[in-house]
Design a protein around this nucleic acid. Sequence first.
DNA 1: ACCGAACTGGACTTGACAGTCCAATTCCGC
DNA 2: GCGGAATTGGACTGTCAAGTCCAGTTCGGT
Lengths: 209, 209
Amino acid sequence: MSKTPTPPPALTRRGAATRARIIETAADLIHAHGAERTSLDDVMEAGGFSKSQLYHYFSDKNALVLEVIRFQTERVLAAQDPHLGTLDSLYALRRWRDALLAINAAGGTTGCPLGSLASEVSNDFETARLDCAAGFAKWSGLLELGFARMQARGEIGPSADPHSLGIAVLSAVQGGLLLAKTARSGEPLRIALDMAIAEVARHTTTGAA
Amino acid sequence: MSKTPTPPPALTRRGAATRARIIETAADLIHAHGAERTSLDDVMEAGGFSKSQLYHYFSDKNALVLEVIRFQTERVLAAQDPHLGTLDSLYALRRWRDALLAINAAGGTTGCPLGSLASEVSNDFETARLDCAAGFAKWSGLLELGFARMQARGEIGPSADPHSLGIAVLSAVQGGLLLAKTARSGEPLRIALDMAIAEVARHTTTGAA
DNA sequence: ACCGAACTGGACTTGACAGTCCAATTCCGC
DNA sequence: GCGGAATTGGACTGTCAAGTCCAGTTCGGT
């Protein structure tokens, strides 16, 4: 579908609530099954909406998928609060690690909601790829901010590149989550996160491991 | 589709060649578009087969997808030869890294053929998940073998765990490839691989970086 | 109280897609 | 050379799925 996603007209409170519920229902199903294997009928049945409601709020299925990407980006980042937003030390980084492992264990190793979507859409759905890339950039940007704070405080040496560290850590997260999803085991994420932390620790001025 | 994949009956040379071509054609399309967005008609048109040929060699689409997973596992590992199979030093690991970056650059950052499939199938297609997990295990097992050789030669210290290092390195690869695919940039893979190498280097007995 | 816009229900259309089936062709073993 | 199994061609069926359309209901502003 090639319609540009129309900015929604002014919604009533009731309309906004319905739209939000559609997005959340779709997000859950798409995370479990993938966008292609989630039909609009599935979303209708799971959330109790009608077809007219779907097409009242979204021009087509792709428009809904784009909203799901934005929603999952916010939800995935929010789930890492307050750890991600206040990252400023190796100690805080370890707290963030522990929180991620707990989230993954509680969620049943079904993979990263944003990462799985990014993998699925990036070769064929350009607007979706850009939105996923923006989501990853936001995520690694928050990590970068934390590493920059650590550098400003002198915990990380001046030669370290907070941008690269942010990308390295996010790579470890995504790879660990993918292997965890495939193996149905928390081990890969734990190992990947420990590598990521060791990478950051390598740049600390005390060389603490 | 719930039919168990029937082991193929004895094939003539011609039949075996056709079957292999179907698998390779399907593998290329599935890598570009994903399994769900690749129809059997797409495979037929791309490879010049008929529907009867597809169903002569494969009980259903899922059986074909399983063969594609096995094919991609072998092809992805073979593409890293000789580097992956002869890994026995930090120097060799760096040669492997360079080869992976070159492969990714040449392939156009379309993601890992095995990783993308693993992400797509792992929540809903159990046999496929197991085959992808086996593929990842084979890959990390080869890395582990290399790290075990390095440990046996004394290049890596006795407290290092080659198994964990194998998983850590593969996590970096998969995460780097996913971010590279999403960003359409080689940077994330390069950064992720350098983190992985630093992680292995951290365990070397000379502490060389 | 009424009107109109927003919201909701659900029947329907069209095309895609996996899979089935009938039949023709090819080729290898005897 | 022939027979039969393997291979190939392609029409067809049934179901799924995105999207359209008509109409009823709700609710807020006037």
